[in-house]
Amino acid sequence: MTVTAEQISAINTLQQQYIDALDQRNMQAWLALFNDDGQYRLTSQENIKQGLPLSLMLDDCHERLVDRVKFVDEVWGETVEGYQSRHMLQPVSAIRTDNGDLLARTNFTVFYTNHEGHTGLLVTGQYEDQIVLCGEEARFRAKLAVTDTAVSPRYIIYPI
């Protein structure tokens, strides 16, 4: 099925809200972009290519997303040195499935800047997103972030 200009626009808005929530470290706003049955998964292309199910983050239900928000907001502040993330996105393709969901692929590159002001490349890769439309608004039913980067140059705290 073809994807309309309005739908493309809804996807773009969703992706912009997503990276803005993360780069502003507004985890509640991040959570709000997932549908009630929404899932998030961050893994490497290396695992995917080898058919290995392990991930770096695997939130396969709403409760897991809620817990991830709680850890970032309430648990790690004192003991994990954070970093400023900066997401760069490039839409690649969008198609519509028979059930009406949209499947969108979007390239991402994420930089980090540490407390000393040093910046480096954290990961690069591609989102494979399943997006549900609720009226004019889009929400993630499943957000899969696949990193080309197999070995990240530091620990990843926040979702990509």
């Binding site: 490497s44 290396e46 290995l52 199910p53 392990l54 991930s55 197999a150 990240s152 530091r154 620990y155």
Partner: peptide, 11 residues
């Protein structure tokens, strides 16, 4: 059974 990998560089 191998489930997969996580790889990182610690400074």
């Amino acid at each position: 059974k191998l489930l997969g990998y996580q790889k990182v560089v610690f400074n």
